[in-house]
Design a protein around this nucleic acid. Structure first.
Length: 486
RNA sequence: GACCCCAUCGUCUAGUGGCCCAGGACGACGCCCUUUCACGGCGUAAACACGGGUUCGACUCCCGUUGGGGUCGCCA
């Protein structure tokens, strides 16, 4: 059932690039919004002046755009809403749901150390809650700085999670956390509550590393008397060593996968199926199809390990789904970047590019493979693979190649069948195995020992090019021979 | 350490009390196809963490144990 009132968001902090964990959360929120016809927002969480880096915002948005996660409305920047948070902090303080804390960070650090030495939970000891009004007045007059803490009411806080079902936590396990720093700025949990409320967020879908924050945020909602959204805590994406993905541990960001030739559809599809299942045996879907079949009821509760091999397998399938033209559009810039050919050269030989792509398509796993496996279709200055060269470029093969070149040159037509007949005919006459002709020829025209069927390569390369390359190879082999004799 | 969450092949997962001596996918291995490498086709190995219950019957429900993850900042 469509529910256009659905409003969700993804809230990255610009303290690193977009990694697969955040991308996965973005995708889930996007799918949830689009499936129900709701709205998907972006909010940049940059309240920490120290750690936030403005230059990181664009790369994050680029990655989101690459994944085709189009968002609604204006992007909200927390750094531009600092005054609003201050008002809310003041409200909490005045409502006596919060209180001033004059403890210095050093003092708090010391308290924590002492607590952990005694094997006690490192929770704030409420020293400043015990201050008398006179003491507070005195400190204020002395100009002492203070942070604002939320006083956690006794009892148990619980909520119905979209994934985890009923979750609860005793107030004994939640400390009076700080909602406003001594410089007056809001901390994360307050800012999130205020923004989610102002933005009209109906469902907060995020990683399960946030459940402890959720209890705190619910308490803030209550202190402020605001409506509480629904929560869904998704399983985390783990590295192969089972740790949470993080940039600091050297995990790749989405942009790197893009550079490695991954298709956004493949990334979208793979990430979507981590911790969520369509409950069918099919697993390759386009983003559009996923929007259609998505339901929040199919989330798993257990964390999932990110497997790059499987991602690449998905990529291969998605490459197979693309049209030749669409692939050419994606591959052309890669050939240009690799310095193989200019944009102009490729645009004027679009048909040729298309044919090369069709030929290579089924053996390619990444977009960049089109370049590494097919550069010789464009690049005439390729090097011969040294190992194959040693094996295939023998003096005898030079003679065979020379003879074959002559025969190719005389061919009236140069298509797959004509080439095959010509080569087979020569092999029969000379009583040599076809492989003795095929392998050196392949190396001569491509510089490689592997690739698509040789006859297809030759036909596509065209007769004059093939003849020229083979002559060059013959010459090369004979020079090699001379060099080794000297 | 405290608290919260989780637990099916190496990995992602299907399974909601009998259809399961557990299905699919990636990976691995083997065979076929083949001039090569891939692709494709066929096939093999590979899992219900453990212990108690509940039940005529548990992968499925309950409890415990073990294991894993997450969180414990005037970071987000």
């Amino acid at each position: 059932m469509p529910d256009s009132s659905v409003k969700v968001r993804i809230a990255p902090s610009p303290s690193g690039y977009l990694h697969v964990g955040t991308a996965r959360m973005a995708i889930s929120n996007y799918l949830f919004a689009r499936h129900y016809g709701g709205q998907f927002f972006i909010r940049i969480e940059d309240t920490d002046k120290e750690r936030s880096d403005k230059s990181l915002i664009d790369p994050i948005l680029d990655a989101l755009r690459w994944l085709q996660l189009d968002w609604d409305g204006e992007i909200v920047h927390q750094s531009q809403r600092l005054d609003i948070y201050k008002d809310y902090a003041k409200r909490i303080l005045e409502s006596s749901a919060g209180y001033r804390c004059f403890c210095s960070p050093q003092q708090l650090q010391k308290d924590r150390e002492e607590a952990s030495a005694k094997k006690l939970p490192p929770r704030y000891n409420r020293r400043c809650l015990k201050l008398t009004p006179q003491e507070i007045e005195a400190k204020l007059e002395a100009g002492e700085k203070f942070a604002i803490r939320l006083r956690i009411p006794e009892g148990v806080t619980s909520f119905e999670d979209m994934v985890l079902k009923q979750v609860s936590r005793s107030s004994d396990d939640i400390e009076d956390f700080i909602i406003a720093r001594s410089d007056g700025t809001a901390t994360y949990n307050l800012a999130v509550v205020v923004d989610d409320h102002d933005m009209g967020i109906t469902h907060v879908i995020r990683g399960n590393d946030h459940v402890t924050n959720t209890f705190k945020q619910i308490l803030i909602y209550r202190a402020l008397g605001l409506d509480i959204p629904k929560f869904g805590h998704l399983p985390l994406i783990l590295r192969p060593d089972k740790r949470k993905v993080s940039k600091r541990l050297g995990d790749k960001d989405v942009g790197e996968y893009r550079n490695e030739g991954l298709l956004p559809e493949a990334m979208f599809n793979y990430l979507c199926l981590l911790g969520w299942s369509p409950k069918t045996e099919r697993e390759i879907y386009t983003p559009k199809e996923l929007v259609e079949i998505f339901t929040e009821k199919h989330f798993n509760a257990s964390n999932a390990v990110f497997d790059e091999e499987k991602l690449i397998a998905f990529n291969k399938k998605h490459i197979g789904l693309k049209s030749g033209h669409d692939l050419a559009v994606l591959v052309a810039p890669l050939l240009v970047d690799a310095g193989v050919r200019t944009k102009y050269w490729l645009e004027t030989r679009w048909e040729y590019l298309r044919n090369v792509i069709d030929l290579l398509k089924e053996r390619v796993r990444r977009l960049t493979d089109f370049v590494s496996l097919g550069h010789y279709f464009f690049d005439f200055d390729y090097k011969y693979e040294s190992k194959a060269e040693a094996k295939q470029f023998t003096p005898e093969s030079a003679d065979l190649l020379e003879e074959l070149t002559g025969r190719f040159e005389k061919l009236p037509g140069f298509d797959h069948d004509a080439i095959e007949q010509c080569l087979s005919g020569m092999a029969n006459e000379k009583e040599v195995k076809k492989a003795r002709l095929i392998h050196p020829t392949r190396l001569a025209v491509s510089g490689m020992s592997v690739g698509p069927g040789l006859y297809d390569i030759l036909a596509l390369l065209t007769q004059p090019v093939v003849v020229e390359r083979m002559r060059k190879a013959v010459e090369h082999i004979r020079n090699m021979k001379q060099e080794s004799q000297e």
